[in-house]
């Protein structure tokens, strides 16, 4: 399996390491940093990391990656968006979700919390929310995976997964395994 991490800005290094750890425990495969066009089409799964959504979005457009991502989504390639990545999945119309940026407030209000996510089992996931967005509304094809303080913070639509928090900052690989199983 070939996993492409959009490597323009944000927690790229952390995502690369988390993906490598999860792959080595599971089916194996390689992790590729995507900085430019022509790499996405060869990937079996794509991860859009956390960072500043405006910056990542602008750079993805400039590098010609946005159209490649849209085409990959159309061909059923699984895509995981975390935090800023979630915002971009909504902005590009790939997922039928409405998103509020910085839904929980500024950095002072950022938090960690044990989050119940049924699809990965009983044990709560330590979810790290940093100036996090939240999903305020979902279309009927969207499956809600987790909620926090009344907001939807994890959702899935076909093979696209959106998380408002940062699984790359903790050592729990369960969400990565869940995502890679979609390939």
């Amino acid at each position: 399996m070939r996993v492409g991490i959009i490597a323009l800005q944000g927690s790229v290094e952390e995502h690369v390491r988390a993906a490598e750890r999860a792959l080595s425990e599971g089916c194996g495969g390689e992790v590729i940093s995507v900085k430019h066009a022509d790499i996405v089409p060869s990937c079996d799964a794509i991860i859009i990391p956390g960072g500043e959504s405006t910056t990542i979005g602008r750079l993805m457009l400039r590098e010609g990656i946005v159209d490649e991502i849209k085409s990959a989504a159309k061909h059923g390639v699984p895509i995981l968006g975390t935090c800023a990545g979630l915002i971009l999945l909504a902005r590009y119309g790939l997922m039928d979700i409405h998103v509020t940026r910085n839904a929980f407030g500024r950095q002072r209000e950022s938090f960690e919390t044990p989050l119940k996510i049924d699809v990965i089992g009983e044990k709560p996931f330590n979810a790290v929310f940093i100036r996090a967005p939240a999903i305020t509304k979902v279309g009927e094809d969207v499956e809600i995976l987790a909620k926090c303080n009344g907001y939807i913070v994890a959702a899935k639509q076909d093979k696209l997964v959106a998380l408002a928090f940062h699984p790359e900052l903790t050592r729990d690989p369960r969400l990565h395994h869940f995502f890679f199983d979609l390939v």
Partner: peptide, 10 residues
């Protein structure tokens, strides 16, 4: 530290 990581490459 996580907040700072989100600034990387910027």
């Amino acid at each position: 530290r996580g907040f700072a990581k989100m600034q990387k490459g910027g």
